[in-house]
Protein backbone atom coordinates (compact mmCIF):
# COMPACT_ATOMS: atom_id res chain seq x y z
CA UNK A 1 0.00 0.00 0.00
CA UNK A 2 1.09 3.58 -0.62
CA UNK A 3 1.84 5.51 2.58
CA UNK A 4 -1.02 7.88 3.41
CA UNK A 5 1.21 10.93 3.54
CA UNK A 6 2.71 10.26 0.11
CA UNK A 7 1.26 11.80 -3.05
CA UNK A 8 -0.38 8.67 -4.48
CA UNK A 9 -0.15 9.97 -8.05
CA UNK A 10 3.62 10.43 -7.99
CA UNK A 11 5.46 7.44 -9.49
CA UNK A 12 8.77 6.09 -8.23
CA UNK A 13 11.39 6.46 -10.97
CA UNK A 14 12.62 3.09 -12.25
CA UNK A 15 14.98 1.85 -14.96
CA UNK A 16 14.41 -1.02 -17.35
CA UNK A 17 17.17 -3.48 -16.46
CA UNK A 18 16.26 -6.26 -18.85
CA UNK A 19 13.53 -7.17 -21.33
CA UNK A 20 12.62 -10.81 -21.86
CA UNK A 21 10.51 -11.71 -24.86
CA UNK A 22 8.31 -14.40 -23.40
CA UNK A 23 6.32 -15.73 -26.32
CA UNK A 24 7.05 -16.82 -29.86
CA UNK A 25 4.68 -14.23 -31.29
CA UNK A 26 6.48 -11.41 -29.39
CA UNK A 27 3.15 -10.25 -27.92
CA UNK A 28 4.31 -10.68 -24.34
CA UNK A 29 7.44 -9.28 -22.80
CA UNK A 30 8.62 -9.30 -19.22
CA UNK A 31 10.23 -6.09 -18.00
CA UNK A 32 12.74 -6.28 -15.19
CA UNK A 33 12.66 -2.94 -13.39
CA UNK A 34 15.08 -1.48 -10.85
CA UNK A 35 14.37 1.56 -8.66
CA UNK A 36 16.59 4.57 -9.42
CA UNK A 37 16.59 5.32 -5.69
CA UNK A 38 17.29 2.01 -3.92
CA UNK A 39 15.40 3.29 -0.86
CA UNK A 40 12.16 3.17 -2.85
CA UNK A 41 12.29 -0.62 -2.91
CA UNK A 42 11.46 -0.79 0.80
CA UNK A 43 8.60 1.67 0.29
CA UNK A 44 7.23 -0.65 -2.35
CA UNK A 45 6.68 -3.62 -0.01
CA UNK A 46 4.00 -5.82 -1.61
CA UNK A 47 2.34 -9.22 -1.51
CA UNK A 48 1.61 -11.46 -4.52
CA UNK A 49 -1.65 -10.51 -6.20
CA UNK A 50 -1.05 -6.78 -6.06
CA UNK A 51 -0.46 -4.59 -9.10
CA UNK A 52 1.20 -1.31 -10.00
CA UNK A 53 0.65 1.52 -12.45
CA UNK A 54 3.53 1.55 -14.90
CA UNK A 55 4.08 5.03 -16.18
CA UNK A 56 5.59 5.91 -19.55
CA UNK A 57 6.19 9.66 -19.53
CA UNK A 58 4.22 11.22 -22.34
CA UNK A 59 2.15 8.13 -23.05
CA UNK A 60 0.32 7.42 -19.81
CA UNK A 61 -0.11 4.69 -17.26
CA UNK A 62 -1.24 1.07 -17.28
CA UNK A 63 -2.21 -1.19 -14.38
CA UNK A 64 -0.12 -4.38 -14.51
CA UNK A 65 0.07 -7.26 -12.03
CA UNK A 66 3.40 -7.75 -10.28
CA UNK A 67 4.96 -10.93 -11.67
CA UNK A 68 7.94 -11.14 -9.34
CA UNK A 69 7.78 -12.35 -5.75
CA UNK A 70 8.61 -10.34 -2.64
CA UNK A 71 11.30 -13.00 -2.09
CA UNK A 72 13.08 -11.88 -5.28
CA UNK A 73 15.02 -8.86 -4.09
CA UNK A 74 16.50 -5.94 -5.99
CA UNK A 75 14.11 -5.84 -8.92
CA UNK A 76 10.47 -6.18 -9.98
CA UNK A 77 9.05 -8.10 -12.93
CA UNK A 78 6.04 -7.11 -15.00
CA UNK A 79 4.77 -9.15 -17.92
CA UNK A 80 3.01 -6.92 -20.41
CA UNK A 81 0.95 -7.82 -23.45
CA UNK A 82 1.22 -5.47 -26.41
CA UNK A 83 -2.30 -4.12 -26.71
CA UNK A 84 -2.94 -0.36 -26.46
CA UNK A 85 -1.08 2.94 -26.64
CA UNK A 86 1.07 2.58 -23.54
CA UNK A 87 1.85 -1.13 -23.89
CA UNK A 88 2.77 -0.74 -27.55
CA UNK A 89 5.20 2.00 -26.66
CA UNK A 90 6.55 -0.03 -23.77
CA UNK A 91 7.25 -2.91 -26.16
CA UNK A 92 9.43 -0.59 -28.25
CA UNK A 93 11.55 0.52 -25.27
CA UNK A 94 15.06 -0.68 -24.44
CA UNK A 95 17.07 -1.59 -21.36
CA UNK A 96 18.27 1.59 -19.69
CA UNK A 97 15.07 3.50 -20.50
CA UNK A 98 13.21 5.08 -17.60
CA UNK A 99 9.69 4.40 -16.42
CA UNK A 100 7.61 5.38 -13.42
CA UNK A 101 5.99 2.99 -11.00
CA UNK A 102 3.08 3.67 -8.65
CA UNK A 103 2.10 1.18 -6.05
CA UNK A 104 1.81 -1.38 -4.80
CA UNK A 105 -1.90 -1.13 -5.47
CA UNK A 106 -4.95 -3.22 -4.66
CA UNK A 107 -5.30 -6.21 -2.37
CA UNK A 108 -3.58 -9.58 -2.58
CA UNK A 109 -4.34 -13.26 -2.59
CA UNK A 110 -5.58 -14.38 0.85
CA UNK A 111 -2.18 -15.24 2.29
CA UNK A 112 -3.34 -15.52 5.88
CA UNK A 113 -6.01 -18.01 4.90
CA UNK A 114 -3.68 -19.93 2.61
CA UNK A 115 -1.07 -20.56 5.28
CA UNK A 116 -1.43 -24.04 6.73
CA UNK A 117 -3.67 -25.17 3.88
CA UNK A 118 -3.49 -26.89 0.51
CA UNK A 119 -3.29 -24.33 -2.26
CA UNK A 120 -4.47 -24.79 -5.84
CA UNK A 121 -3.28 -22.32 -8.48
CA UNK A 122 -5.08 -22.15 -11.81
CA UNK A 123 -4.02 -19.81 -14.57
CA UNK A 124 -4.41 -19.28 -18.27
CA UNK A 125 -2.62 -17.21 -20.86
CA UNK A 126 -0.98 -13.92 -19.98
CA UNK A 127 -2.91 -13.71 -16.70
CA UNK A 128 -0.37 -16.04 -15.14
CA UNK A 129 1.85 -13.20 -13.94
CA UNK A 130 0.59 -12.69 -10.39
CA UNK A 131 0.34 -16.47 -10.10
CA UNK A 132 4.03 -16.70 -11.02
CA UNK A 133 4.64 -14.28 -8.18
CA UNK A 134 2.55 -16.48 -5.88
CA UNK A 135 4.28 -19.73 -6.84
CA UNK A 136 7.77 -18.26 -6.44
CA UNK A 137 6.66 -16.85 -3.08
CA UNK A 138 5.20 -20.12 -1.81
CA UNK A 139 7.99 -22.37 -3.07
CA UNK A 140 10.74 -20.19 -1.62
CA UNK A 141 12.58 -22.39 0.91
CA UNK A 142 11.83 -19.88 3.66
CA UNK A 143 8.08 -20.03 3.06
CA UNK A 144 7.37 -23.51 1.65
CA UNK A 145 6.85 -25.06 5.12
CA UNK A 146 3.96 -22.66 5.75
CA UNK A 147 1.82 -24.36 3.11
CA UNK A 148 0.62 -27.93 2.70
CA UNK A 149 0.15 -29.43 -0.77
CA UNK A 150 0.68 -27.01 -3.68
CA UNK A 151 -0.89 -27.88 -7.03
CA UNK A 152 -0.97 -25.71 -10.14
CA UNK A 153 -2.61 -25.94 -13.54
CA UNK A 154 -1.34 -23.53 -16.16
CA UNK A 155 -2.49 -23.43 -19.75
CA UNK A 156 -1.75 -21.50 -22.91
CA UNK A 157 -2.89 -21.85 -26.50
CA UNK A 158 0.37 -23.48 -27.61
CA UNK A 159 3.86 -24.18 -26.31
CA UNK A 160 5.35 -21.00 -27.72
CA UNK A 161 2.84 -18.92 -25.76
CA UNK A 162 3.76 -20.36 -22.36
CA UNK A 163 5.30 -17.74 -20.08
CA UNK A 164 8.32 -18.12 -17.83
CA UNK A 165 9.84 -21.17 -19.57
CA UNK A 166 12.91 -21.07 -17.30
CA UNK A 167 10.73 -21.29 -14.20
CA UNK A 168 8.49 -23.97 -15.71
CA UNK A 169 11.51 -26.25 -16.06
CA UNK A 170 12.26 -25.67 -12.39
CA UNK A 171 8.68 -26.13 -11.17
CA UNK A 172 8.35 -29.37 -13.14
CA UNK A 173 11.41 -30.71 -11.32
CA UNK A 174 11.02 -33.24 -8.53
CA UNK A 175 12.24 -31.00 -5.73
CA UNK A 176 10.25 -27.93 -6.66
CA UNK A 177 7.71 -28.37 -3.86
CA UNK A 178 4.79 -27.91 -6.23
CA UNK A 179 2.81 -30.32 -8.37
CA UNK A 180 2.78 -28.42 -11.66
CA UNK A 181 0.50 -29.33 -14.55
CA UNK A 182 1.08 -27.50 -17.80
CA UNK A 183 -1.32 -27.77 -20.71
CA UNK A 184 -1.65 -26.35 -24.20
CA UNK A 185 -4.84 -26.14 -26.21
CA UNK A 186 -3.17 -27.82 -29.16
CA UNK A 187 0.30 -29.02 -30.03
CA UNK A 188 1.55 -27.20 -33.12
CA UNK A 189 3.50 -29.14 -35.74
CA UNK A 190 6.49 -26.81 -35.73
CA UNK A 191 6.99 -25.92 -32.08
CA UNK A 192 10.13 -23.86 -31.60
CA UNK A 193 10.91 -25.59 -28.35
CA UNK A 194 10.16 -28.98 -26.96
CA UNK A 195 9.87 -29.14 -23.18
CA UNK A 196 11.83 -31.67 -21.23
CA UNK A 197 8.73 -32.42 -19.18
CA UNK A 198 5.35 -33.89 -19.92
CA UNK A 199 2.80 -31.36 -21.20
CA UNK A 200 -0.92 -31.99 -21.34
CA UNK A 201 -2.88 -31.22 -24.48
CA UNK A 202 -6.32 -29.84 -23.73
CA UNK A 203 -8.11 -26.93 -22.14
CA UNK A 204 -7.51 -25.87 -18.56
CA UNK A 205 -10.95 -27.00 -17.26
CA UNK A 206 -10.33 -30.56 -18.51
CA UNK A 207 -6.99 -30.73 -16.71
CA UNK A 208 -8.53 -29.25 -13.57
CA UNK A 209 -11.22 -31.92 -13.68
CA UNK A 210 -8.59 -34.63 -13.86
CA UNK A 211 -6.08 -33.26 -11.35
CA UNK A 212 -7.98 -31.14 -8.80
CA UNK A 213 -10.33 -33.41 -6.96
CA UNK A 214 -9.93 -32.73 -3.27
CA UNK A 215 -11.47 -29.56 -1.83
CA UNK A 216 -10.53 -30.50 1.74
CA UNK A 217 -8.77 -27.70 3.56
CA UNK A 218 -7.92 -26.04 0.24
CA UNK A 219 -7.91 -22.55 -1.24
CA UNK A 220 -7.98 -21.99 -4.98
CA UNK A 221 -6.55 -18.88 -6.57
CA UNK A 222 -7.22 -18.39 -10.24
CA UNK A 223 -6.66 -15.87 -12.94
CA UNK A 224 -7.32 -16.26 -16.62
CA UNK A 225 -9.41 -15.23 -19.61
CA UNK A 226 -13.21 -15.16 -19.23
CA UNK A 227 -13.70 -18.39 -21.20
CA UNK A 228 -11.32 -20.24 -18.90
CA UNK A 229 -13.14 -18.96 -15.81
CA UNK A 230 -16.54 -19.74 -17.26
CA UNK A 231 -15.73 -23.41 -17.77
CA UNK A 232 -13.37 -23.93 -14.84
CA UNK A 233 -15.61 -22.64 -12.05
CA UNK A 234 -18.33 -25.29 -12.62
CA UNK A 235 -15.64 -28.00 -12.56
CA UNK A 236 -14.39 -26.76 -9.19
CA UNK A 237 -17.90 -26.55 -7.81
CA UNK A 238 -18.63 -30.08 -8.98
CA UNK A 239 -15.50 -31.23 -7.16
CA UNK A 240 -16.98 -29.75 -3.99
CA UNK A 241 -15.17 -26.42 -3.67
CA UNK A 242 -17.30 -23.79 -1.93
CA UNK A 243 -17.51 -20.20 -3.19
CA UNK A 244 -15.61 -19.02 -0.14
CA UNK A 245 -12.63 -21.23 -1.07
CA UNK A 246 -12.21 -19.80 -4.57
CA UNK A 247 -10.42 -16.48 -5.20
CA UNK A 248 -10.25 -14.73 -8.55
CA UNK A 249 -8.27 -11.77 -9.74
CA UNK A 250 -10.31 -9.34 -11.85
CA UNK A 251 -9.27 -6.56 -14.17
CA UNK A 252 -11.00 -3.48 -15.50
CA UNK A 253 -10.01 -0.26 -17.17
CA UNK A 254 -8.28 1.88 -14.53
CA UNK A 255 -6.73 5.31 -14.36
CA UNK A 256 -5.94 6.31 -10.79
CA UNK A 257 -5.52 2.83 -9.27
CA UNK A 258 -6.40 4.23 -5.84
CA UNK A 259 -10.20 4.20 -5.87
CA UNK A 260 -10.87 7.80 -6.92
CA UNK A 261 -11.42 8.07 -10.67
CA UNK A 262 -14.48 5.85 -10.59
CA UNK A 263 -14.37 3.70 -13.71
CA UNK A 264 -13.37 0.23 -12.50
CA UNK A 265 -16.37 -0.43 -10.26
CA UNK A 266 -18.32 -3.67 -10.25
CA UNK A 267 -21.44 -2.66 -8.38
CA UNK A 268 -20.29 -0.82 -5.29
CA UNK A 269 -16.80 -2.38 -5.29
CA UNK A 270 -13.77 -0.89 -7.00
CA UNK A 271 -11.51 -3.45 -8.68
CA UNK A 272 -8.45 -1.25 -8.09
CA UNK A 273 -8.93 -0.72 -4.38
CA UNK A 274 -11.35 -3.33 -3.02
CA UNK A 275 -9.80 -5.89 -5.41
CA UNK A 276 -8.39 -7.03 -7.75
CA UNK A 277 -8.74 -10.25 -5.72
CA UNK A 278 -12.28 -11.27 -4.75
CA UNK A 279 -13.65 -14.53 -3.47
CA UNK A 280 -16.36 -16.14 -5.53
CA UNK A 281 -18.62 -15.64 -2.51
CA UNK A 282 -17.98 -11.88 -2.60
CA UNK A 283 -18.60 -11.72 -6.34
CA UNK A 284 -21.89 -13.54 -5.86
CA UNK A 285 -23.19 -10.55 -3.91
CA UNK A 286 -22.22 -8.07 -6.63
CA UNK A 287 -24.10 -7.15 -9.80
CA UNK A 288 -22.81 -9.06 -12.82
CA UNK A 289 -21.11 -6.44 -14.93
CA UNK A 290 -17.66 -7.60 -15.93
Amino acid sequence: MIARDRNPYLPYPVRIEEIITETGDHSLKTFKLVFLDPADEARFAFLPGQFAEISVAGKGEIPIGIASSPTEKGYLLFTVQKMGVVTSHLHSMRPGDRLGLRGPLGNWYPWERMEGRNVVIIGGGCAFSTLRSSIVYMTDPSRRPKFKRLTAVYGARCLSLLLYSDRLDEWKGEKSGIDMHVTVDAMQESEPRTPRWQCHVGFVPAVVKEKIKDPTDAIVILCGPPAMLKFTLPVLKEAGFADGQIYLSLENRMKCGIGMCGRCNVGGKLVCKDGPVFSLAELGELPRET
Binding site: Y9, K59, G60, K255, C256, C261, G262
Partner: peptide
Protein backbone atom coordinates in the same frame (compact mmCIF):
# COMPACT_ATOMS: atom_id res chain seq x y z
CA UNK B 1 -19.93 13.74 -9.74
CA UNK B 2 -16.22 13.12 -9.28
CA UNK B 3 -15.12 10.81 -12.11
CA UNK B 4 -11.93 11.82 -13.83
CA UNK B 5 -9.48 10.79 -16.50
CA UNK B 6 -5.70 11.19 -16.54
CA UNK B 7 -3.85 11.97 -19.76
CA UNK B 8 -0.28 12.85 -20.71
CA UNK B 9 0.45 15.73 -23.04
CA UNK B 10 3.85 16.63 -24.47
Amino acid sequence: CWCFDIQDEV
